[in-house]
Amino acid sequence: MPSPLWPYATPGIPDDLFERLPGIPMSPREVRLLILSSLRLKVDSVLWDIGAGTGTISVEAGLLCPKGQIIAIERDEEVANLIRRNCDRFGVGNVEVIEGSAPDCLSTLKQAPDRVCIEGGRSIKAILNATWQQLEPQGRIVATAATLEGLYQVSESFAELQVRQIEVVQSAVNRLEKRGLNQTFASIDPIFVLSGEKLD
């Protein structure tokens, strides 16, 4: 069911419609669109959103998968409550917020995912290994990296896990902003989005 705050069938909710907390990262709309398209969600997908942060991916996925289940995993209690508030803002009822640190909390989750989204993280290799064991056959995994070191770790893990149909995209987005009397283009920090499939 469409949200009154975002009554459209397409993703791409403007950033300023989400509640935010200082210092808590949020995937900009343009990067979010890359992540969501890489996930290739189905209406009944079970998505694990690991390191959910502000909850933007969880909210958008919840709206796109009305028969699905979104598990938002966040270790910080205050940030987890922020995700819940953003879900309430958009009337999304199929997101469950789990307070815990990945990969340790992943073994307690009851539903195996057919889609996984991992946005950065200090233990990215361990998280990838743990989620790969739980990921359903024909499932898809998407991971982001903001640094060269993160890109290397995800790439190495994908090779070790024998992820198939790998795609790597780097965002290069500029937004028009008004500064004083002038309008100028401001760049958004580039992010690598890596995705692939589990064939068996």
Rank of each mutant, 00 (worst) to 15 (best):
T108Q: 12
L64G: 08
V31H: 06
P137F: 02
D16R: 13
D76S: 09
S107D: 12
A61F: 03
A145T: 12
L36H: 08
V97Y: 12
S123M: 13
I83Y: 12
L5M: 11
D88M: 11
V92K: 04
E160S: 01
S3Q: 10
A172I: 08
P103F: 07
A80P: 14
E78S: 11
E156M: 00
I50F: 08
M1R: 11
V142W: 09
K67W: 10
W48R: 01
S27D: 08
M26F: 11
P103E: 09
A143R: 09
I118F: 10
P2K: 12
R40G: 02
I141Y: 05
P22S: 08
I188G: 00
E197W: 01
A52F: 04
K198G: 05
P113Y: 03
L63T: 05
K178Q: 13
L64M: 15
R29N: 05
P22E: 12
E149W: 04
A159D: 00
P14S: 02
G55L: 03
G53V: 00
S187H: 03
E197A: 02
P137K: 01
C87L: 15
I73P: 07
T10F: 11
L82I: 07
A52S: 15
Q165P: 03
Y152S: 15
L21P: 04
P7L: 01
V168F: 03
L64D: 07
A9N: 11
T131L: 02
I141W: 02
S123C: 06
S101I: 12
N129P: 03
C105D: 06
S37M: 07
R40W: 03
S187F: 04
C87S: 11
S157C: 02
G51S: 02
K42Y: 10
L109P: 04
I13G: 05
L176R: 12
E167S: 10
A72H: 06
L109S: 04
I118Q: 12
L82F: 07
A112W: 00
V163C: 02
R84V: 15
T56A: 15
G55E: 04
R84T: 15
L181S: 11
S58K: 04
S195M: 02
W132I: 01
G23R: 01
W6S: 02
I70V: 14
G150V: 10
A112C: 05
L47W: 04
C65L: 06
E60D: 09
R115D: 14
K198M: 01
W6H: 06
E99K: 15
A130Y: 07
L21W: 06
L199E: 00
A130I: 07
T54Q: 08
E156C: 01
G53D: 03
